[in-house]
């Protein structure tokens, strides 16, 4: 079974993030595998362990992404294809990334039975790259899955729908995107870490791809980036219940301005 996993590196949202001149400052930020993509990596490795085959990690990004790709290789993926954007000046959005990945799959002649991606990235949270890629490749996709069973060419998937669950049957080839709950990503073993450096990691430049620059030009523009407002300590209302309710309604109107 040939398994492709799309992996994005994001900054760790649990660490301190600083914004200067409208961009997240990279110096000092901690970069990690996008948590949803880590579920995708884990599921890819599990599918390989069950059905045999090979797991290939696909990542678009600058030089720092190598560390995250090596971690996926340390977890048990077999090889990586890295589309280096270090020297690329233009803006890239979800549409560009999906096109670049498709062009890379073609250029590298990567065969696949299944493609796994994270449901969304925790940095810009758009949840588009997976479905867009499926569309470009003309294969079906199921997003936000919490369980997958592959039996021959048949696939049964459990999909999270806003807290409810749908069971969907489909066939390979297929693209799925991982939701929290799909699995518990493993820690890379020490042997895995020591071997990761020796696993093949192919580097591709955007120039190498059969794709025009205009085709991947971003179609969206980020106007502003700002940190969420600081949470103040909560307010606990005192007094009789009826008075508290009146005060609460008052505050919701005047202070929180939500009604």
């Amino acid at each position: 079974m040939n398994i492709l996993v799309c992996l994005k590196q994001t900054f760790d949202t649990e660490e301190r993030i600083t914004i200067e001149n409208g961009v997240v400052v990279e110096d000092g930020a901690v970069f990690v595998i996008n948590p949803y993509d880590e579920y995708a990596v884990e599921e890819g490795i599990k599918l390989k362990e069950e059905h045999g085959g090979e797991v290939t990690i696909l990542t678009v990004g600058p030089e720092r992404v190598e560390a995250s790709m090596r971690k996926a290789l340390a977890m048990g993926a077999d090889k990586g294809v890295w589309i280096n954007t270090e020297d690329f000046d233009g803006d890239l959005d979800e549409h560009s990334i999906a096109k670049i990945i498709k062009a890379t799959i073609e250029e590298q002649e990567l065969e696949f039975d299944i493609i796994l991606a994270g449901a969304m990235a925790v940095d810009d949270g758009s949840a588009q790259v997976g479905p867009r890629l499926a569309e470009l490749l003309n294969i079906p996709h199921i997003s936000t899955i919490t369980k997958i069973t592959v039996d021959g060419g048949n696939v049964v998937v459990e999909k999270d729908v806003e807290g409810d669950m749908e069971v969907i049957e489909s066939k390979l080839p297929l693209l799925v995107t991982a939701q929290q709950g799909l699995n518990e990503p493993r820690y890379p073993s020490l042997q895995g870490i020591m071997k990761a450096k020796k696993k093949p990691l192919e580097e591709v430049e955007i120039d190498d791809l059969d794709i025009e620059e205009e085709e991947i030009e971003a179609k969206t523009k980020v106007l502003e980036i700002y940190l969420p407002p600081k949470k103040d300590a909560g307010k606990i209302l005192q007094g009789e219940l009826a008075d508290q309710v009146t005060e609460l309604v008052q505050l919701l109107k005047s202070e929180a301005k939500v009604i």
Partner: peptide, 17 residues
């Protein structure tokens, strides 16, 4: 080195988890 960093991250995750 890349390995030492990976071991640190892995052990930190392991210790916390």
């Amino acid at each position: 080195t890349a390995e030492q960093l990976m071991i640190r991250n892995m052990m930190r995750d392991f210790a916390d988890g």
